[in-house]
Simulated assay, not measured.
Amino acid sequence: MNILLVDDQLLFLESLKIVLENLDKTFKVVGLAGNGEEAVKLVQELSVDLILMDVRMPVMDGVAATKIIKEKFPKINIIMLTTFEDDEYVKDALHNGADGYMLKNIPPEMLVSSIQAVKDGAVLISPSVAGHLIDSMYVNNKKAASNLKRDIPDWYNLLNSREKNIIKLLIKGRSNSEIAEEIFVGSQTIRNYISVIYSKLDVGNRTEAIRKAQQIDSFFTISYNVIYKSTF
Results as ranks from 00 to 15, higher is better:
Q9G: 00
G97W: 02
D86A: 14
L16S: 02
K25N: 11
S126I: 08
L16W: 09
M102E: 07
F84L: 11
E181A: 13
Q9C: 05
Q215V: 06
I194E: 09
V59E: 03
V139L: 13
I197V: 15
D154C: 00
G100V: 04
G100M: 05
L124W: 02
K67A: 13
P127N: 02
D202V: 06
S136I: 15
V55D: 01
S187G: 04
N160F: 13
A64E: 14
L10M: 10
S175V: 01
K70V: 05
I171L: 09
Y89D: 07
N22S: 09
A64F: 08
G62K: 11
E14Q: 13
K75G: 03
Q188Y: 03
E14N: 06
K91H: 09
V43K: 10
E109H: 12
L16H: 05
E21A: 07
D49S: 12
N77W: 10
L11N: 13
L11I: 09
D92W: 02
G186P: 05
R174G: 00
D202C: 04
P108K: 03
Q214F: 08
I69W: 11
N96V: 08
V43D: 09
S177F: 05
N160T: 09
I76N: 11
I18T: 12
L124Q: 05
N205W: 04
G62R: 12
A93N: 08
L50A: 07
T221P: 00
S230E: 08
K149D: 07
Y89T: 03
D120F: 12
N147Q: 08
I222V: 06
P58L: 09
N96S: 14
S114W: 03
G36C: 05
F27W: 07
G173C: 03
V40L: 05
Y198D: 04
L42Y: 14
G97H: 04
S199T: 12
W155V: 10
P153Q: 07
S126D: 15
E163S: 07
V63I: 15
N176W: 00
G62H: 11
P108V: 06
S161D: 11
S177G: 00
R162M: 11
L148V: 06
Q188S: 15
V112Q: 04
